[in-house]
Design a protein around this nucleic acid. Structure first.
Lengths: 252, 252
DNA sequence: TAGCGATTAATTGTATGATGATTTAGCGTG
DNA sequence: CACGCTAAATCATCATACAATTAATCGCTA
C-alpha cells in the first residue's frame, strides 16, 4: 500500500496517468498518419483492448472523442469506420498535431495559408480599435521574445505563434479566436521543414513590431497592411519550402 | 431491475439506439442554456446517472464528448467543471444548436456576422475559379428552392443555408468549408427572430442568382461583390431584428 | 492557538463481465 | 430467383468492483 504509493510518486514523470488521453492520441495518430485509411473499419473494440492493453471502457471513450472530432463514425454491429478526410475537423488542434508536419497535405497547408490571408488582416483591422492595453503589451512581449530567440528556432516559432494567437484574440471576435489552432499547425510545419533554410526572420520581426505600433495608434488600415506583409513573407517561405509543388495559388 | 428495463422499452419513443446521444444533448443544452453557469461544478457522475436514468458508462462518454467540445473540464476527485464561455468551441454545430436562438448572445452573433463578411466574399472569389459544374448546379438549385419556398419561411431558410454552405464548399478551401456551422446558426437565429418582420427576400434572391452567374462566368471580382451585397442585406436585417442593441459594429 | 504534516474520505478513472439491441449474413422456402 | 426468416457477431448499455487522485479533516508540535 504505502510503498506502492511511494514508488509511484517517486517514478513520477508520469504523475498524470491519463491512460485514456494517451490511447486517444495513439488511435488518432494512427488514423491521421494513414495507418487506417478512410473507409476502412478499424478492429473491433475487444481487439483494440488487447492492442493497446487497456480496458474496453477506455477504448470506447476514446472512440467517442474521435467521433466528435469527425475522424470516425461508429455504427452498431458493423464497427467504427474511418471517415473521409473531408469530414475531419481540420480546425481541431489535436488533429492537426496528430497529422504532423509529414502528413499535412499540400492542399491543407494551402487552405490554411489562404484562410490566414483572409482572416488575419481583418482581425488586425478589428484589433486596432478593440485591443486592450494588456493585449498590446502581450504582443510586444511576443516580439521581444522573437528577437531574443536569435538562434533558437523553436523558441522563435513559439513566440511567433503566441503573437498571431494574441492578435486573433485581440480582435475580440470569437470566431476568429477559434482559428488559433490552424496557425499553430502552419507554424509548426514551417518550423519542421525550414530547419536548414535560414529564412530572414529579421525582416519579419520588423513588420511584426510595426503592426503593434499601428495597433497602439489605433490605425486599422496600417495594421491590416502590416498583417498582409507578414503573410506575404510567410507565403514566400512556404512556397519555397514546398518547392512550389502542389500548385499553391498565391492569388487573393 | 426488470421493471426498469420494461419501462424503458415501453416508453420508447426513444426506441432508436441513441441513448448516449440524447444524454449528451441534454447535458450540453443544460450547460449552453445557462442552467450550469461557467465555473460551477456539475453534479457527480452517480447523481447524473439518477437524474437522466442511465448508467455511468453513458454519463462518462457524454462528458468526454462535451469535454472535447471545450464545454467542461473534468478533474479527478473534484468533478467536472463548466468551462468559461471563451473556451467553448463556438464553431461546433451542436454547441450552436444547443445555445439556440434565445441564448445566442449579441456578441457571438456579431462575431459570426463579422466572420461571414470576411470569409464569404473571399470564398466567393475563390469559388469563381474553382467551383465544379456540379457545385454551380447545386447553387442554382438552392436558388430555385428559395424561390419556390415563397411563403414557407423554414424552407426558404433551409435553402438559403444550403446555398451558403455549398458556396463555402465550392471555394475548395478546407478551412472555409468547416465554417458552415456558423452559417446555420446565424440563419436559424434569423429564422427564429424574424417571424413577423417580413424581410425582403426577393431582393436577396436576385443577388444570390447574380452570384451564381458570376461563378459561371468565372468572374471572381463580381462574385465577391455579390457576396458582400448579400451580407449587407443580412447585416441590415440582423441589426433591425436586434434593435441595434449590442452596438453591432457594421464597419469592415 | 496557529501552523503544518499525515491520514482519511469522497470522487473520478479504469477494469471486468453480463445483457440487450441491431444489423449483416446465411439459410431455407415459395 | 426472389423473398423472408433465423442466427450470429458486434456494438450499446448496464452493473459492479477496484485503483488513483486529491480535497478536507484530524492530530501533532511549537
Amino acid at each position: 500500500m504505502t510503498d506502492k504509493a511511494t514508488r509511484r510518486s517517486l517514478r513520477s514523470p508520469l504523475r498524470r496517468p491519463r491512460v485514456r488521453h494517451n490511447v486517444t492520441a495513439a488511435i488518432g495518430a494512427d488514423i491521421c498518419g494513414g495507418r487506417f485509411p478512410p473507409g476502412t473499419v478499424l478492429p473491433r473494440e475487444s481487439d483494440l483492448c488487447e492492442t493497446y492493453g487497456v480496458s474496453r471502457t477506455v477504448i470506447r471513450e476514446s472512440l467517442k472523442v474521435l467521433e466528435t472530432k469527425g475522424l470516425v463514425r461508429g455504427r452498431p454491429r458493423v464497427g467504427t469506420i474511418v471517415c473521409d478526410r473531408a469530414e475531419w475537423n481540420v480546425l481541431d488542434a489535436q488533429i492537426l498535431e496528430w497529422m504532423g508536419p509529414d502528413v499535412l497535405s499540400a492542399e491543407l497547408l494551402g487552405s490554411i495559408l489562404e484562410a490566414r490571408r483572409t482572416v488575419e488582416p481583418a482581425a488586425a483591422f478589428l484589433a486596432a480599435s478593440r485591443a486592450t492595453a494588456q493585449e498590446i503589451a502581450d504582443l510586444e512581449r511576443a516580439c521581444d521574445d522573437m528577437g531574443d530567440a536569435e538562434g533558437d528556432l523553436e523558441a522563435f516559432t513559439a513566440a511567433d505563434a503566441r503573437f498571431h494567437e494574441t492578435l486573433l484574440k485581440a480582435s475580440h471576435n470569437k470566431v476568429f479566436h477559434q482559428l488559433s489552432s490552424i496557425i499553430h499547425a502552419a507554424l509548426s510545419y514551417a518550423l519542421h521543414a525550414s530547419n536548414r533554410a535560414a529564412v530572414k526572420r529579421d525582416e519579419a520581426l520588423d513588420v511584426h513590431r510595426e503592426l503593434v505600433d499601428a495597433l497602439r495608434l489605433r490605425d486599422g488600415a496600417r495594421a491590416e497592411t502590416c498583417s498582409r506583409q507578414i503573410l506575404d513573407l510567410a507565403a514566400r517561405d512556404l512556397s519555397r519550402l514546398m518547392g512550389d509543388a502542389g500548385g499553391l495559388k498565391t492569388n487573393l
